[in-house]
Design a binder for these strands. Structure first.
Length: 415
RNA sequence: GCGGGUGUAGCUCAGUUGGUUAGAGCGCCUGAUUGUGGUUCAGGAGGUCGUGGGUUCGAUCCCCAUCACUCGCCCCA
């Protein structure tokens, strides 16, 4: 243990952070329900194979960012670096093909061993949706519309841009990859070292390079759109028209590619300029081969994921929590009585802060800190008449109220 | 994984061109006549100056290492 610090790249979520996270999650969950997406939860770790097989042997996530370890039983397991593979595995494990189309929402922590930065942690949290079992582009439109809806609800839409592109079907991508490889081979000597490495593994990713020299070469690279076959062209055209019809603005970005191997056809990304190098806010695409690769029946799918930390940074303050009633005994001997009163009010639905310690001054001060709207002050003087003092903490006005009528009075004044 | 910046009280930061007791604001605690908060006033607690080495008569200040955060690359959510 080193100085009681959290492990690098992990963070405690104190109440204020957690409230922000919940705001994002709650809004996303509710919005997803409007579209008929139900929440599921899959395990935080899976057999390593689940990720290694599906994310692609060349992706950085698999090759250098996974938290992989051996169990006591000698099995290799991995902390999930993303959510889609687990959902796909669950789809296969539970035979959900018979329920297709399956529409799910999920949220939870993900783990990647990356260099921490603002908006990039080793344990971070995502929300995500998957729509599995629909072949047509209407699924893509629906899923993008849902993402758009959530960003709108969080008030971050004005800070983001939606970019979309087509990665084509297998045939198109294979053909384009060949053309692209040929082009970059001819400029190999001028490419950055990173891009030269990508050339053999995944030449599409070179299109995404930020290196200045690479960009000049990329500018003259073959056009992906021109190499799509008819099926792929119709597909992306339909998606684009659908977005137009729904009034969702977007930009076609022919250089937009995905780091994970399972994507095809539609790739999309809501990006922002507000988070430095971490521009992706909500990103996803279509993954028609994934379920089959996992060992299930050939099933198409499309989905996205978004980082909660990033969304929380972009979104404004979450709605304030309900203001409590503070119950304050004047002297220690009335503490039990005060706690009983607190409990009975909670049973009627009021949030109540029972004041544990300190003199009355102290307790009222704390009530103020807790943003209590009123204090119920229990003192001998009123109690002998069966009353308590009800003090409104905004106006400072107070009146003695019969104990038996407290709940009703609060109901009238503060509901 | 690579390169740059930062690291002083719970928080935000000042400061020492190396030299006896390290400061501010906010927050926290106590008090301003005994049953009343938010304002004010007066006191107070709290720091081995990230950690470990080194140089020096002496280091919080210089050097090295290490850890964490941060910016860019990379990667992506």
């Amino acid at each position: 243990m080193t100085n009681l610090q959290p492990v690098r790249g992990t963070h405690d979520l104190l109440p204020e952070d957690q409230r922000r996270h919940y705001h994002v999650k709650d809004l996303a969950r509710k919005t997803s329900e409007l579209y008929g997406f139900d929440e599921v939860a899959t395990p935080i770790f899976e057999f390593t194979e689940v990720f290694a097989r599906t994310l692609g042997g060349t992706s950085d996530i698999v090759t250098k960012e996974m938290y992989t370890f051996e169990t006591k039983g000698g099995e290799s397991v991995t902390l999930r670096p993303e959510g889609t593979a687990g959902v796909a595995r669950a789809f296969v494990s539970n035979g959900l093909a018979q329920h297709a189309p399956v529409k799910v929402f999920y949220t939870g922590p993900m783990f990647r061993h990356e260099r921490p930065q603002k908006g990039r942690q080793r344990q971070f949290h995502q929300i995500g949706v998957e729509l599995i079992g629909v072949e047509g582009p209407q699924a893509d439109i629906e899923v993008i519309a849902l993402g758009h809806h959530i960003l709108k609800g969080l008030g971050v839409l004005e800070n983001t841009t939606l970019e979309i592109n087509s990665l084509g079907d297998v045939e198109s991508r294979f053909a384009f990859r060949a053309v692209l490889t040929e082009y970059f081979e001819s400029h190999k000597s001028s490419l950055s070292e990173d891009s030269r490495n990508r050339l053999a593994k995944n030449p599409l990713r070179i299109l995404d390079s930020k290196d200045g020299g690479d960009r000049e070469i990329i500018a003259g690279a073959p056009d992906f759109a021109a190499h799509l076959n008819d099926v792929s062209k119709v597909f992306i055209d339909t998606v684009q028209q659908g977005l137009i019809d729904l009034g969702i603005p977007y930009q076609r970005n022919l250089k937009l590619v995905r780091g994970l191997d399972y994507y095809c056809h539609t790739a999309f990304e809501f990006t922002t300029t507000e988070l430095g190098a971490q521009s992706a806010v909500l990103a996803g695409g279509r993954y028609d081969g994934l379920i089959e690769q996992m060992g299930g029946p050939s099933t198409p799918g499309v989905g996205w994921a978004a980082g909660i930390e990033r969304l929380a940074m972009l979104a404004g303050d979450p709605p304030a929590k309900d203001r409590p009633i503070s119950v304050v005994p004047v002297s220690a001997d009335l503490s039990g009585k005060a706690q009983e009163l607190s409990q009975s009010l909670r049973n009627t639905g009021f949030p109540v802060e029972f004041s544990f310690t300190g003199n009355m001054k102290r307790r009222l001060k704390r009530a103020d800190k807790n943003n209590a709207r009123a204090a119920l002050i229990l003192g001998q003087d009123e109690l002998k008449d069966g009353k308590v003092m009800l003090r409104d903490l905004d106006s400072g006005e107070q009146e003695a109220v019969l104990l038996s009528a407290v709940a009703e009075t609060l109901q009238k004044k503060y509901s």
